[in-house]
Design a binder for these strands. Sequence first.
DNA 1: ATTGACAGATTGTCTGATAATCTGCTTATT
DNA 2: AATAAGCAGATTATCAGACAATCTGTCAAT
Lengths: 229, 229
Amino acid sequence: MGDMDLQIARQSATLRTQVEDKLRQAISSGRFKPGQRLVERELCESIGVGRTSIREALRQLEAEGLITSYPHRGPVVSTITYEEAAQLYSVRALLESYAGKEFAENGTAQDIHTLNEAVAEFAEAAANGAGSRLIKAKTAFYDCLMQGSGNVFVKQMLTSLHNRVTLLRMTSMTQPGRLNHSVEEIKEIAAAITDRNGAKAAAACKYHIDMAAKVALDYLRKTSENDGD
Amino acid sequence: MGDMDLQIARQSATLRTQVEDKLRQAISSGRFKPGQRLVERELCESIGVGRTSIREALRQLEAEGLITSYPHRGPVVSTITYEEAAQLYSVRALLESYAGKEFAENGTAQDIHTLNEAVAEFAEAAANGAGSRLIKAKTAFYDCLMQGSGNVFVKQMLTSLHNRVTLLRMTSMTQPGRLNHSVEEIKEIAAAITDRNGAKAAAACKYHIDMAAKVALDYLRKTSENDGD
DNA sequence: ATTGACAGATTGTCTGATAATCTGCTTATT
DNA sequence: AATAAGCAGATTATCAGACAATCTGTCAAT
């Protein structure tokens, strides 16, 4: 049998969980746009499950901040104002710096190895310009970073924040020139961590997010000039 | 009409919301203890609502981390290990320091005024030793601190962390001598914020949490020596 | 232009039913 | 005696149907 993967498909534990994933993905892929109403019955039909599962999944997403529901009016994909976006990036910088620092100072050698592999994969994906592969690589990198922080709360909070960034509906990576910078910054982070240099890792993380924030916020400011009421 | 409060009691929007509050309170008051199973039908009976409302409320608490549910086995009040408790206090220190710093540097005069009132109330409650009043005062202080930070994400995350601290089932304030120190530390925080001294406010916040963490973790270490398996 | 009433749509909540799954106990097997 | 197999009871997961409460937009009346 060798080292064959023993995990059985596990048919995703519960239906509700699968619905959550489907909805999360629909939101982050932009199929459901911020501000859009989510009508229960329509979701039931399109996903093919009963109201129970839909409603419970919606409660979860609501708690995560991905949707906002108003009593007797139902849920709406959350929108993020300019100010909130700025706040989001601030906290992200704070938490990711912390994660980077902890990783550098207390991460296992194994974690560091995995991190460097993720960075390499990200760099390669960036060079070849494959969209979905790029996203997957970036996700892997962050998963590793959060894992390495060794703090479950940080991990949880950052995951939530990352999900919410997608509500901004713009990938800072799609901005011209940003991607290459991004790769460099991430390499910087990994290098600092590999060096076991906590302060430097924290600084590199903060720099990375601050740059991403700058691009995103500039973009938001420009595009919201038209419909700012 | 003057500045009369126009808000009507609004009977707590939806039933589900009320159930959430009831459950949250039952957990933080210790009526439901960590590790305890929560059986749907029993909750329905004791709270007097249908399964729908119960189940949806449970999903919310699950997302908040207050309960953990296992597929086909139902929810259990979450438990926190020693390591997790340490991690919790670390993040709390990080976020509250940030909140304190932002408050000091960007909070409104009104917020500062409210903060000082909350501190005064807390000090007085501590002097008179009224349990529930003390808790209320401390809550008010933290609400104000988070409000003043001006960051909705920080506010949300700290609220979640505060709720989870109650899972430790020990108030660091009940430790002999701790309360007076606590009052002093909080006064220190308020003073730094009133002085608009960001760095000092951050340091004071961190110190406050670090002290609370020390007491709590020492206590946990002692009591878990017996049942640590 | 504002107010008020009405109809349609959608949510909030309850109840009952069924299948799936977990748990513990009894029984059979080596 | 230790382990495996199997069975019964308890509880959850999910669905379907029903009804009240509430929101929204429209149209008439002032």
